[in-house]
């Protein structure tokens, strides 16, 4: 029991922080521009593919730095030449535009790299078990992921609270119009925000892909869950995104680890159903089986009772 708990906690933390790296960029973009970027996970995918392609030629470590920068530039270009044109048609058009871009990026990735999984793996330097507890290994690469995520988190925190740029961003989150009136170059700020936000997604892609796989569906697979995170945490709130990421990361890992199901519950209530009952699938459902669906359930319940999310303050 103890080993399950410890490992679930560790794995939940790794996964949760990864979600945060994605959701922080999404939140940043949303706060500044009011756009929920549907294509955010696609930039995560681009990060993975760029890093894979670069790692063949220049190795893993340079790719770790260069790939997110390339993704950031791609994001900035998308804002400059795409989103900015659509801005005048309103938020729904912007959301639909990013939806279309997500669709298109997946096609482009397939066009260039094909439809198969790509062999993008952890560097040999990190390919060893860091420690073994109760006979279960904890891989060094996971520790590395943890380290990078925390570093990014601290860097974000410092930039947002201690620097001038951070103050402008914070101001823009709460009073976007005021910032423009104070004479800041809003289009440039927007472009930079989009670039930085997508670069964050790019980093997530670079470090997560060796564990989660590099394939054309990877954006789609992760896309909706990061929406759940930002909406659950409260749109536009970085703190909310952080708490929600960890919550969802940990809840999901714990759900898988504990074999509790309806049969146990029914046994507790002293009920029993036949195997050919019309709802037999409902009576035999178990927690690991539905684990990955729990975030969606959490989202719906949250939105019904508190549409602002955990820490959200802005009505959308």
């Amino acid at each position: 029991m103890i080993e399950t708990t410890i490992f679930s906690l560790l794995n939940g933390l790794v996964y949760g922080l990864l979600l945060f790296m994605l959701s922080s960029g999404l939140t940043l973009i949303f706060s500044m521009m009011g756009v929920l970027n549907f294509a955010h996970a696609s930039f995560y995918m681009l990060g993975a593919y760029f890093a894979y392609e670069m790692s063949i030629h220049i190795g893993f470590w340079p790719a770790l730095i260069l790939a997110p920068i390339a993704v950031g530039f791609a994001g900035a270009a998308l804002e400059r030449y795409g989103l900015r044109n659509v801005h005048k048609y309103g938020h729904v058009a912007e959301l639909v535009f990013t939806f279309g871009i997500a669709f298109l990026i997946e096609e482009v990735v397939q066009f260039i790299w094909g439809k198969d999984q790509q062999p993008y793996n952890a560097p040999p330097l990190l390919d060893f078990p860091l420690f073994t507890l109760f006979n279960v290994d904890f891989p060094a690469y996971k520790a590395f992921m943890l380290f990078v995520s925390i570093a990014i988190f601290i860097a974000l925190l410092v930039v947002l609270t201690k620097t001038r740029v951070g103050l402008i961003i914070q101001a823009a989150i709460t009073h976007p119009h005021m910032v423009g009136m104070l004479g800041h170059n809003v289009p440039l700020v927007f472009m930079a925000t989009f670039g930085v936000g997508t670069a964050l997604a790019g980093i997530a892609g670079v470090i997560a892909a060796p564990v989660l796989g590099t394939y054309p569906g990877m954006a789609f697979d992760l896309g909706s869950i990061i929406f759940v995170v930002v909406v659950f945490g409260g749109l536009g709130s970085l703190a909310g995104a952080f708490v929600a990421s960890l919550m969802i990361g940990i809840v999901q890992t714990f759900a898988v680890s504990f074999n509790i199901g309806m049969p146990d519950l029914l046994a507790l209530l002293g009920l029993e159903f036949g195997a050919d009952h019309f709802l037999v699938d409902l009576w035999t459902i178990s927690l690991p089986q539905i684990g990955p669906l729990i975030p969606y359930l959490m989202l719906i319940i949250m939105l019904i009772f508190r549409p602002l999310g955990l820490f959200g303050s802005r009505e959308v």
Partner: peptide
């Protein structure tokens, strides 16, 4: 957005 997200959650 709230409506869009609820619809996404229920759809999934």
């Amino acid at each position: 957005t709230i409506f869009a997200m609820i619809s996404l959650g229920i759809g999934e």
